[in-house]
Structures are given as C-alpha cells and as structure tokens.
Design a protein around this nucleic acid. Sequence first.
RNA 1: UGGGGAUUCGCCAAGUGGUAAGGCACCGGACUUUGACUCCGUUAUGCACAGGUUCAAAUCCUGUAUCCCCAG
Length: 367
Amino acid sequence: MLDKKKVVVGMSGGVDSTVAAYQLKKMGYDVIGINMRLWQDEFLEDIHLMHDGGCCSLSSVEDARRVCEQIGIPFYALDFKGVFKETVVDYFIEAYEKGTTPNPCIACNKYVKFDALLEKAHQLGAYYVATGHYAKIYFDEGHSRYVIEKSNAIKKDQTYALYNLTQDQLKHVLMPLGEFESKEAVREIAGQFDVAMSRKSDSQEICFVPDQDYVGFINRNGTKEIKPGAFVDTSGEVLGEHQGIINYTVGQRKGLGITFGKPMYVVDIDVDHNQVVLGDNQEVFSREVYSTLNNFVLFDELREPFECEAKIRYSAKPSKCTIYPLENGWVKTVFDSPERAITPGQAIVFYKDNWLVGGGTIERKPQ
RNA sequence: UGGGGAUUCGCCAAGUGGUAAGGCACCGGACUUUGACUCCGUUAUGCACAGGUUCAAAUCCUGUAUCCCCAG
C-alpha cells in the first residue's frame, strides 16, 4: 500500500531540489531524499565544482547529503546508471549519428526521473515522487485530468521538458516550485541551508558531457565512425567540406569553418549522403512542423485540428499555430508565422493558455 | 623576362597624403536544465619587401618578389 503522505525527492544538491524537499517537509510530507547516480566518466571528476546542475548535476552527492541532514530527512544515493545509459546517453549518441539533435533532458525526465525513480519511490512505499522543476501539476476538474500548467516564475518555466508525462505519472508527481514567483524567491529560502549553494550559478550544459564537448563525447562513446563530408547549398552545389554530421544542428551558424561574406546557417542534415545543407537566414525559416511520438496531457488524443500555441525549443515564446492529426500518430503543426530553425530531434510542445497541451518529437517532413 | 593590373588580420574587403571601416572565421563572456540561435567584448603599432619624398604615406616615387591578363 502506497503512503500518500510519503514522497521521494530527487536531490541533486542544487538550489531547486533542496527547496522542493524543504517545502514538502514543511507541508507535512514524509520526505525521502534520493540522489541519483547517473553517469560515470573519468572526465567528470570536477564537474560539480562548476555548475549548479539544477536537475541533473551528477557529482553533488555530498551537497545533497548535507542538505538532507539539515532539513532532517533521510538520504540515499542510488544507482540509476543502467537506465540512464540506455535511455538517455545511448539515445543521445544515436540521435546525433542519424543527423538529428537530441534533447537529453526530456528523455531523462521521461525514463529516469518519472519512471525509474518513481518506481523506486513505490518500492519505498511512497505514493509520490517530487522534483525541483518549475511547473505546476494538479488535477483539474474542468478537464477531469491531471494537467501541467506553466510555472508562476514564467522565466524559469520548465514545462517544455515535461510534455511526455502520462496521466499515470502525473498522478504521482509533485512539483512544489511551480507556485514560486521567481528563482530569487527560491534562492532566498535555499540561503538558510547553505549560503554557498544558494549562490550557485544556473549555468547548465549536458550533464554527462564534460566541457561542453559533446562531439568528443560521442567520439569516445559512439559506435559509428565520424566521416567528413560535403557542405552543399540548397540547390546541391558543393561549398566545402564538413567535419562529420554530428558537429552540426539545424540553425547553427558558428563553427562551420567556412566563410561566405555573410552569415550562413545549417538548413538541413542529409545523413544518407553525409551532407550538411547550408543556406542564408531566410532559408532557415518555415511554418510547418511534423512530429511523432506525440503525447497529450490536456486530452487523450488529437482527433481534429486544434488551435493553440507551440514552441519548438526550450527557450522560446509560444507562437500561434494549428495542429492537425495525421496517420500513425503523427501531428502536423502549421504556425501562423514562420519559425526559425525547426530542428529534427528537438521537441515541439503545445500550449493552450497556461496549460501544456502536449508535444512530440520533431521529424523531417515525410516523403 | 614586351605591355597592363594586382599585393591591407586566417578569408573577403573599405581606405587615393593626415595618422588602418566592416563582414565572415577564431577566441572570451552573457543568456540557457539539450543542441543551437541571439547579445556583448577582444583581436593588424601595421597595410608583400627594401629604400626615398613629406611636418605627416597603406595612400606619391624607385627597386625587388609573387600572382593575374594580353601579346610572343
């Protein structure tokens, strides 16, 4: 029997998860802090010295332990390396190898934090798992469903990374930071535990990749050989040589190592021909987006065209669009105005007012 | 080895006597729970080289080198 007063909190040792745990404790929950061991890499030794890590700092076990002690809750460091490697790291590498751009945080949320960790929570008898995400989750009578609503701290809103959560998961998830009006308010509370920690920076890269060098990471851990190939323009004309498709993502401008007297951007990546297509600023805009693996939160299934807003990357303002159901669970999104750099592999997330409608993985237009 | 033109930061390029624009690339920083984008900043004591004229030259003169074009 699961205890509804019992909650497992994923503790990174950072500001957000610390305050989340503290708030729950204050609300009277029986809180258990768990630090997830996710990845080991000899290059990661000092990474916790550089970043707060927010959700997924890897080496802050000691911070997490100390904080739990101060809050007065039990603490465990548990091994999640297996799931993490399979569902996040391998996915990450494979995505790049097939010419797309992964979003590891979304995968981690889906498979690790709200699946593996939730399962662990249940094993410990806890009904809930909680995190320091900036988002609001609750049961909405109007929709007769669990819903995800944007955080009050709109600048820190993290609902984008949560679109994959199912009703089953949402039922068991608490996000106490959703009501906070700002990160500053959260930091203030964190200050009482550990001054140094409350000042930790927000900066964040891919948590398992040292030095922002994801290319080196894939070279060390990937299976495929990275081969140079041709840069071509949108008409197929060869412009130069690229260093391997994993180095590029749609919309990228810097690091092409080739000059044209005007800014040039990656417009597309053609894995089959090992080519990277370049174009000018105008050529990187488009109104249509196709997505698969869609999950809807506000309703069960998309059955007819639906007017809403959507964003195609984490840090973007939602733009007006209409979404259309296609066959095999695909969704076609048509924006009112062109969007910049629609990138296969990234997520498109739909919103209606402050509610998260759903989302999916961006794919290239089906032929 | 006749004539003409060129040579400015890694690349493109402005500057025609008054004390080296700009773009791209690179590098650094900000922003960011992904990758990108964006923003800010740094970057040639020196204009192929050697002399000369001038208060003052990348800009004028002389010579040298390299490249391009036209003639043999």
